[in-house]
């Protein structure tokens, strides 16, 4: 064998070593749930987190709202966020994140209309089954009415050519005073995602 042959063999050997080093990595791994994720221009977990973060920050420091929350913890109900995009987006998941952050701030209280039927069933059982002590049984008609309502929209503008897909998302959220009908607060979060097709290696 010539000297060059040894060089070739050792070169191939090192290459094989490097490649096999990657093969030990399992195919399924845990990722960071808070990581910035940009797999495609579709609505992603990062977009949801950014929207929730931005909306909550804006609402919590809006001066007229700060004045109100300094005195009391207003009760809010969450209406639907209308999905006007072409994609399937679980908008309830966005409002759930916003609600969780607002509740944990200690500034607001929420009522949840999605569990009303279960609540009625439970109170009925407490009142009528005879199982529950009358003194501790929950009464009908004692719930607190919401003072404000959160509602919103999510829309999308998509532009495409052969190489570029550009998607613009706009999320709008408003806080409406249910007594007066006035929008006490509203804000928008814009997100732009651009995907470029590579000229080489498609």
């Amino acid at each position: 064998m010539e000297k060059r042959d040894y060089f070739l063999i050792s070169g191939i050997g090192i290459c094989a070593f490097i490649i096999s080093g990657c093969a030990t990595t399992p195919l399924v791994q845990y990722g960071d749930a808070q990581a910035l994720q940009s797999v495609s221009t579709d609505f992603s977990s990062s977009d949801l987190q950014q929207i929730a973060e931005s909306m909550v920050d804006s609402l919590l420091v809006f001066p007229p709202i700060v004045d109100v929350t300094n005195q009391r913890r207003p009760v809010i109900t969450v209406d639907k966020v209308k999905n006007k995009t072409m994609q399937h987006i679980d908008t309830e998941s966005i409002t759930d994140s916003i609600r969780a952050k607002l509740v944990k701030s200690g500034k607001f209280r929420f009522i949840d209309r999605t569990t009303d039927q279960e609540t009625i069933n439970e109170i009925k059982t407490q009142q009528e089954s005879g199982l529950v002590d009358k003194n501790t049984a929950v009464q009908f008609g004692k719930q607190i009415g919401a003072e404000y309502m959160l509602s919103g929209n999510i829309s999308e503008i998509q532009q495409k050519n052969v190489q570029i897909t550009d998607v613009y998302y706009k999320f709008t959220l408003s806080l409406k005073n249910l007594t007066t009908g006035i929008l006490e607060w509203t804000d928008e979060k814009e997100i732009r995602k651009v995907s470029k097709r590579r000229t080489f290696g498609g």
Binding site: E2, G11, I12, C15, I19, C22
Partner: peptide, 20 residues
């Protein structure tokens, strides 16, 4: 054989750069 050796070296460098 010489060309093969150079080719081996090239692949090695490319893979190394990729890995890094």
């Amino acid at each position: 054989m010489r060309i093969l050796a150079y080719f081996g070296l090239l692949v090695f460098v490319l893979v190394g750069v990729g890995a890094l």
